[in-house]
């Protein structure tokens, strides 16, 4: 624990963004998420940690209904965004995902130009009316993704030609372009080298001013570095949730303690 730099930032009590009660997820007969209750605040970075297969990614994918694309997956319980149940029959997942963006483990830029990658979301959601508008959105998103300076001279080059770290920041910029309220990140740094990881982590801290960020990570150090809230998942259960500092220095549950000291996982 001694090498861990825990950033103790003062977090004011914020508005609740996601309110999840008794969430259960089944894959066929497999009960993957058991009775999870968690409240995620706005303008906060929340980290989900836990050993492989503990259900943290599954839970993350419930928050923007990405699990809908898997036929055998079933979600029960109450998940509400700003007080509205996102699994309500009236809710269209397409609109939900415009509000809750997602960044994936492996950078997955579309095989299009950098410009078109960013413009994809605004175009399908009809967020812009003119070419000038779109240019502005693209520039703003690329700046927010902290990649504008690197690509501004080659906006029409293919996005797949960038380095891994650049690709991931491009994907973050792409997610930001639709003006979401929440940004879900599924192990965004696991395919990156340490320098690129540092850049993305710095970016996450800056994104917090505009979005509420939820990040799944394998690395406890990363969780400690970037997040204000941490949730520890184990075998499909949410074991402990609280301020990051508390979780890492003063875990209440013995399982959390075993994990962060490296005895399980």
């Amino acid at each position: 624990m001694n090498d861990m730099r825990i950033v103790e930032r003062d977090v004011d009590t914020q508005a609740i963004k996601f309110d999840c009660e008794n969430v259960q997820v089944y894959y066929g007969d497999n009960h993957a998420i058991k009775d999870v209750n968690v409240r995620i605040e706005s303008n906060t970075v929340t980290a989900f940690i836990g050993p492989s297969g503990c259900g943290k990614s599954t839970f993350l994918r419930c928050l923007n209904r990405m699990n809908d694309t898997i036929d055998i997956c079933r979600v029960e319980g109450k998940l509400s965004l700003d007080g509205e149940n996102i699994y309500d029959r009236k809710v269209d997942p397409v609109q939900l995902r415009a509000k809750v963006g997602m960044v994936f483990q492996k950078p997955n830029p579309f095989p299009k130009s950098i410009y078109d990658n960013i413009a994809y979301g605004p175009r399908i959601h009809g967020l812009v009316d003119s070419k000038a508008d779109l240019d502005m959105v693209v520039e703003r998103s690329l700046r927010r993704g902290a990649i504008w300076d690197e690509v501004k001279d080659r906006l029409h080059a293919p996005g797949t030609g960038l380095s891994g770290g650049q690709q991931q920041r491009l994907c973050i910029a792409r997610a930001v372009a639709t003006e979401p309220e929440v940004l879900l990140m599924d192990e965004p740094c696991s395919a990156l080298d340490p320098i690129a990881t540092a850049q993305v982590e710095e970016l996450i801290e800056e994104l917090r001013t505009n979005f509420s960020v939820i990040i799944v990570t394998h690395s406890m150090q990363q969780a400690a570095r970037v997040s204000q809230r941490t949730a520890f998942f184990h075998l499909g259960e949410l074991v402990e949730f609280g301020k990051t500092g508390d979780i890492f220095t003063n875990p209440k549950d013995p399982r959390t303690e075993s994990y962060i000291t490296g005895r399980i996982g």
Binding site: D82, V91, R140, A146, W148
Partner: peptide, 21 residues
Amino acid sequence: MTDVTAAPASPARKTTSLYEV
């Protein structure tokens, strides 16, 4: 990472209800 601060402020988000399609 200086360009972040230079980023133009985003326009006020339209807060629409998810229940309205």
